[in-house]
């Protein structure tokens, strides 16, 4: 039970897809301008993540290894199309404000990344939990960023005016403001996760022991670039 809970909570903070794994940043930067858009995007994302994780987990023994990426994409695209049609039919305003980014969920790295890193190797229940955790983690970040950006940048929250006209700092709802908030949120989360003055070192889905791992992720190779080798030489 504890393990299951951990799979779920991983996505919330410790392996937050946006702020720690740095996946799917594009839609976060673009959509976190309004809170309503951010909530819609977060929900659409969570739905697609849970569904695609579930289906890919069920199909994991059927899908041949060599063509797994195209297979994942087809599954994801099916659910995205579904979401897109529903949103267009029932929430035309939201559909308008999300624009191209709704369709772009297909190629969002978070969903493909979870399919590749988790769903294709784990059972149905675990994959659904993982998708739910990652989806909520994404939603939390995009909504939190949207609250700050909309409140300070346009002076409103969910469209209601909070700060009087003329006292907003417009740069926050423009592109540079998105990058600024993204950096600040990342720094704050890393600071909060660090314990006893130690810096938080994110583990990207593994414990860094490449010898006992079947993954071909080449994390270890990062330490073996010419620059890193030279540095080790200098130190020794």
């Amino acid at each position: 039970m504890k393990n299951k809970l951990k799979i779920f909570t991983n996505g919330l903070f410790k392996e937050n897809p946006v702020l720690i794994l740095l996946l799917g940043c594009c839609s976060v930067l673009a959509i976190s301008v309004t809170v309503s858009g951010a909530i819609g995007m977060g929900l659409a994302m969570t739905f697609v993540l849970v569904c695609s994780n579930a289906v890919i987990s069920l199909l994991r023994k059927v899908i041949p290894d060599k063509v797994r990426i195209p297979c994942f994409i087809v599954v994801i695209a099916a659910f995205v199309t579904l979401v897109q049609m529903v949103v267009e039919a029932y929430l035309p305003d939201l559909y308008e404000s999300l624009g191209i980014f709704l369709a772009l969920i297909v190629v969002n790295c978070i969903i493909l990344g979870r399919a590749e890193m988790f769903a294709s190797k784990n059972s149905l229940g675990d994959s659904v939990l993982d998708g739910l955790g990652m989806g909520i983690g994404y939603t939390l970040v995009i909504v939190a960023m949207a609250v700050v950006r909309e409140l300070i940048g346009s002076g409103t929250l969910l469209g209601y005016r909070i700060i009087p006209e003329g006292y907003q700092i417009g740069i926050l709802v423009q592109t540079p403001g998105g990058f600024l908030m993204f950096g600040i949120f990342m720094a704050v989360l890393i600071y909060v996760l660090g314990k006893h003055g130690k810096k938080f070192e994110p583990k990207i889905g593994c414990d860094g022991k490449c010898g006992a791992c079947s993954e071909n992720c080449r994390i270890r190779d990062v330490n073996e670039t010419p620059a890193a080798l030279k540095e080790q030489e200098v130190q020794s």
Binding site: I169, G170, I171, L172
Partner: peptide, 9 residues
Amino acid sequence: RIVMMFSFT
């Protein structure tokens, strides 16, 4: 200056 330029044009 850039922040002011974009925010308070």
